[in-house]
Design a protein around this nucleic acid. Structure first.
Lengths: 112, 112
DNA sequence: TATATTTGGACATTATTTGTCTAAAATATA
DNA sequence: TATATTTTAGACAAATAATGTCCAAATATA
């Protein structure tokens, strides 16, 4: 039972809504929403956006939550999952520094 | 051009092997190995194991490299990729602490 | 107890990843 | 320079994974 499940379940309960009503409002099958609330499935990006809008959940934070959950489900079978993330971080930082470099280059070119 | 590409390319060059020879030895299409070396594709787990054995690359380290590369390719489109990894880390740590708890429980039960 | 709601499981559909093929491009060799 | 060999890129087939739907069983409510 992940945080996403709880967030969705609580959001619906606070509003005293049944799945059918949410399903109609956001155009997602009620069975699927049930699975999200039970942690059986993870919403897609589009579904995430729809649900966050409907429930007034901050979109970016929710997206981060969803995508990180997907990452976790991919790597959790490995005993070295934490190391994977550390290495991934280094790679992302490296990519960002390359982008930063390119941005600086572009800025210099624009100045000319 | 990722580290994986360089590792594979250098490993092959050091041994003065052509793709065809490696391909036959590890039973992976030579065109595919070329794509790995160029960073166009990422090897599967099974391919990773085969290549690490063939080249004598430490398997666990190589697996970590490969899987983290896949994670990176999934999330790098987002400007908040680093945050995703941070949250994923917290989730993994949480899971590990739950597992630790279960292990302790199991140990206690065994002791009885 | 009847009805409404939620859930789980099977399976269809869609999307993504992976593997293969082939010829062009690049490089090496004679 | 001609030829052989190697590498590569692109198209597409095949395999796998993710996602959506359907429907009845399970559960909750009145």
């Amino acid at each position: 039972m992940s945080a996403i499940s709880e967030i969705l379940y609580n959001a619906r309960k606070q509003r005293n809504l049944v799945l059918r009503k949410v399903a109609a409002a956001v155009d997602i099958d009620q069975s699927l929403i049930s699975k999200f609330e039970k942690g059986e499935r993870v919403p897609t990006k589009e579904q995430t956006i729809k649900l966050s809008k409907f429930y007034g959940i901050p979109q970016k934070e929710f997206l981060i939550d969803i995508i990180s959950e997907k990452v976790v489900r991919t790597i959790q079978e490995y005993e070295f999952a934490e190391t994977i993330l550390k290495v991934a971080e280094e790679k992302i930082e490296y990519l960002n520094s390359k982008r930063g470099f390119k941005k600086q280059q572009n800025n210099l070119l624009d100045a000319k």
